[in-house]
Design a binder for these strands. Structure first.
Lengths: 212, 212
DNA sequence: GATAGGACTGACCGATCGGTCGGTCAGCCT
DNA sequence: AGGCTGACCGACCGATCGGTCAGTCCTATC
């Protein structure tokens, strides 16, 4: 089975539980993971999970909150070391993609919440962090607009959500491309370059732009 | 509760089961829906569900297959009544968005499978249909390229997957935008127009294009 | 009218779910 | 030494899970 994850008894049980829960919830979703699964994967007794967390939902929220906070902090650090206004978008796309690849559990959890939870806005720790992510990106896009980098009429929020959403979606469907013949000649890195090119310059040719 | 769905005993039980299962699986996902839920929602006995389907997975596959086939057929009909090559992309985006809004269960099921199921490629009825959808779109984009509509270097498969993925993702996260202050001044229709504009023309200004 | 077969049901099964309980044990304060 | 606290565990609870089964009902065929 692919559930191979060594249990290092040196790290505190609480952290082991959180780490195992994050991995399992990301892989299989909330309802498909039992407390017994989490307990077994973290090398503790099932009752001990309930000792550290009030219930299954509390554990899930703790996992979610941790992932979101870490992503927000990483994004803040990344935006602080900003590139020139024109290079913002490739810079962000490269970093974001790398982050999602290094933290697949975070990416998957986030996507699950974004698309699968209708009550996301009202409750839970994800929504506020998400709003902050969008706001940070919007501020940067706006700065780019002030420098004349973007066309007139480009809505900063649309661009920000496009960047966040497209990359997240594509990172999570990467495994599909490997099975589709049409993608055989497009490597992962080439794909990002192609995607960035489309976002920056659009798909239309100069000829088509004039006749429209 | 929002589970209000009238049970019309005039329609055959088999169809009632399929319809209820599609709605429930789309809303809550495979593991969160029990056969009892499906039976109650379709007005039949639980055992009757097992009479019509070999098991829970068989029911799920039947639901998934039905959704995929219907989407594929609708897309074929839509592409048959094609617009001029230059108008393909707005044409497709408008139709696709309308389809996803009219069939929210299909959209949600598809997205769940695309992002949540690591074994999608190996099994299930979704993958072949998905491949066909991409292929159809790719063929149309290629036709556009032949007419000089698109820039050189634009990869048809990248555009096709971008169109399918972005629209699907955005349709499923629409409810989020209604809760975010940054979106307050952007209506749903305005959003599609803005998104289409970005895809067709890119975000960079003429000035930025020259200095790069 | 007898009968065969599919649609359908209520009652039931073992397994597993989230969660609880009583209790052990090590470390820390006084 | 004695008392307290929090980490931790094995055993257990009621509820619900997916699935089974014997049997009833309806209808078409002979």
């Amino acid at each position: 089975m692919p559930d191979a994850a060594p249990i290092d008894l040196a790290v505190p049980a609480l952290e082991r539980i959180l780490a195992a829960a994050e991995r399992l919830f990301a892989e299989r979703g909330f309802d498909s993971v039992s407390i017994s699964d989490v307990a077994a994967a973290s090398g503790v007794c099932k009752a001990n999970v309930f000792h550290h967390f009030a219930g299954k939902h509390a554990l899930y929220e703790a996992v979610l909150s941790g992932s979101c906070v870490r992503l927000g902090e990483a994004m803040e650090r990344m935006l602080a070391t900003g590139a020139d206004p024109a290079g913002q978008i490739p810079h962000f796309l490269t970093w974001y993609r790398a982050y999602l690849r290094e933290h697949p559990a975070t990416a998957r959890l986030l996507l699950r919440e974004l698309t699968g939870n209708p009550d996301l806005a009202e409750s839970g720790p994800v929504f506020p962090v998400l709003v902050r992510l969008v706001d940070m990106l919007v501020a940067h896009v706006r700065a780019g607009s002030a420098h004349g980098v973007f066309r007139e009429g480009i809505h900063p929020t649309v661009v920000a959500s496009l960047l966040l959403g497209v990359t997240l979606f594509n990172a999570q469907t990467e495994h599909l491309r490997r099975h589709m013949a049409a993608w055989r000649d497009v490597g992962d890195d080439a794909y990002v370059a192609l995607l960035t090119d489309v976002l920056l310059r659009g798909v239309l040719s100069a000829q088509a732009l004039q006749t429209r």
